[in-house]
Amino acid sequence: MSYRWNPEAFERDLAEAFARAERGEPVVPYLTEDATGGLAAPGTGFKFGREIEYDLPESLKPHQDAINQAIARDLYDAGLTRDPWTHPYHTGHDGGYYEGDNGWRLEQDVSVAGELVSPPLYDTPRTWESIQLVCEIIKSHGGVATPSTGGHIHVDTSAFDHIPAFYQRLLSLVNRNYFGVIQTQIKLALGTVGLALRLGDDQFPLNHHEKDVAGNHTEHRRRLDYSSYLELADHLYHRAADKAQLTALFAITQWNEKKKSPGRYE
């Protein structure tokens, strides 16, 4: 099912996302079986990792250490971590990530209240259950997502080997442009890595050979011009459920205005 050939399918998915929001239901669906359509299948797909940052409301910040200890204890009791402690920032990166179901690690992060670092993951029901459980434990102790919190998604690009062409395609794709959101973001990262491997040179750049720079989507949405999104969704996924999920994320995404200076550092 192609969005570009069936724009009514996109309109329907978009309308359903807004309807779920109006009903107070989770806007982005959460899948637990074959959620990535093989992109992250054990043994043949891309391995990935996810960092989940959380913060605390002002009223709870004086108790941050105690709350983090309680979260660490609950994570351990749930079989998600190997110890009931909070580790220094970057412990996983510096010392190596744990493997296995209990390989999550709670790390300190000075910019927010704390950060959960996942073990290397594949698309299994256990993975999605773990992410759901992690979020529920954080929320149960008052942890919240705020504009300050984020979460890196790591996708194993060892399939790119030492070939600049794949990274160049990935960069070209990237530059163009609570459970369910996390899962869909992971799938978006996985799909983009897969696309860099799959597309041919003659298919670049997408979007009618026009650069789709950051900030464009704000203007596109004002004009109800979804063409670049429809093309991307069609390239990323072939399953209707994946496109519908991505469209739900699209529906609730607040697009940034164009920035005058694209550089991150002065």
Binding site: H162, P164, F166, Y167, Q168, L171, N175
Partner: peptide, 18 residues
């Protein structure tokens, strides 16, 4: 250096004019 070479080359190629 080799890992950085691949990524830096990809970034330069993406910046163009390829």
């Amino acid at each position: 250096a080799l890992d950085a070479q691949v990524r830096a080359q990809a970034e330069l190629a993406a910046a163009g004019p390829l």
